[in-house]
């Protein structure tokens, strides 16, 4: 998955423009980082990798980069 694709997917989930999706940005600073966004991430990983995220992995998500790493 290219970085561009990651940006597109995450921009859609966070409901922002792609240029706002910076690797070091804190997820809690995005207004739309809520339970629906988390469900969207879980669904995205499930669809791409066929696995369900563990609760511990969800808790560890702090920055945009953390989500990009999950997409790899």
């Amino acid at each position: 998955m290219s970085k561009q694709e990651k940006c597109e997917v995450l921009a859609e989930i966070l409901e922002v423009e792609e240029d706002e999706v910076l690797e070091d940005a804190l997820l809690e600073d995005f207004e739309s980082w809520d339970s629906v966004a988390v469900l969207s991430i879980i669904a995205e990983i499930q669809e791409r990798k066929g696995v369900f995220m563990h609760a511990d992995d969800i808790v560890k998500l702090k920055t945009v980069k953390d989500i990009f790493d999950l997409f790899d």
């Binding site: 809520d34 339970s35 629906v36 988390v38 469900l39 563990h54 609760a55 969800i58 808790v59």
Partner: peptide, 15 residues
């Protein structure tokens, strides 16, 4: 409801 916290509760304590 804190949706995230409740989801994590279902995945941790409930499991």
């Amino acid at each position: 409801m804190d949706g995230n916290a409740v989801l994590l509760f279902s995945m941790n304590d409930v499991c």
